[in-house]
Nucleic acid binder design. Structure first.
Lengths: 145, 145
DNA sequence: ACAACTTAGTTGTATAATACAATTACATAG
DNA sequence: CTATGTAATTGTATTATACAACTAAGTTGT
């Protein structure tokens, strides 16, 4: 394993993380935040789920997800469907408004990313997407065991 | 431009950002943080610099870098070299202790990353490193103009 | 030469995203 | 039916960031 590439990956990941962190500062009033959108996306694509399941899925602390869920609920993007068998639990379901918001957000992000990558070859885009996916997969697998 | 890869890139970046954010939680006492290490790395590889120059380099707010610099100084990893021509300004220079710390940190990170990627082919590591670099470059170029 | 402007850095305040610990309310097993 | 376990919330803390107000020092223009 060539150490040089490891070093590159490490430092570029650090830089990337920071860029993504500071880029997050286009928060006009009324917008909702990145993490909350991941939650919205999850319950949209995978169906309703409770806080605990979502936290496991994302490997986050339950408290983190709980607060995100509360924020989403406050904005009317999700509602809580009580679990009939367990009065402590509930499922988060996306609302019409939530779906609209999610679409909107995705659309905007896609446009931005398209603009950013407008000079990239299709091959590079594809490779980058695949490798990111693979990396995330590797990361989640390792940390979970 | 194939929209599908854009979508993959978008969502995988979001996931990656989050993983990197929560992985940051192995902070034993006495450790120093990711961002501060980027600063240390920068003044090591590019030579001493002031807060303003570093902030520009990283495209961060000056206040952010100022605080990071203060933290590094408090730990004894950098010292302030007053600029003889401008009494407002100074250069951050790395100390022996700072170098030791930086080495140590890099070493540990390299080992972790090597472990993480132990099943990756050399080709994939290389491609991932290159694409990350390219992406960061694209990102910094665009946002700066 | 001094008033007006500009610049380097700091500090106050705010926000997002996270974790861990304590708590609440309910569920389940002896 | 008491003891233990579990879903979620809430309190508190941390890192990393930005923006705005401020301080002190340098620069410029008449």
């Amino acid at each position: 394993m060539n150490e040089n590439w490891l070093e590159t990956i490490l430092s570029e990941l650090a830089v990337l993380h920071r860029s993504l962190g500071s880029a997050a500062k286009y928060k006009k009033p009324g917008t909702i935040e990145r993490s909350a959108h991941l939650l919205l996306g999850q319950i949209t694509s995978q169906g309703p789920a409770g806080v605990k399941a979502l936290a496991e899925e994302f490997q986050l602390d339950i408290s983190t997800v709980s607060r995100q869920a509360a924020a989403l609920e406050k904005k009317g993007y999700v509602y809580r469907m009580p679990d009939p068998l367990d009065k402590r639990a509930y499922s988060l379901q996306i609302t019409e408004l939530g779906m609209k918001e999610l679409m909107n957000y995705k659309q905007k992000r896609l446009a931005d990313m398209g603009e950013l990558l407008k000079d990239w070859s299709a091959e590079d885009c594809e490779a980058f997407g695949q490798l990111l996916k693979k990396f995330n997969h590797t990361l989640l697998n390792l940390t979970s065991k």
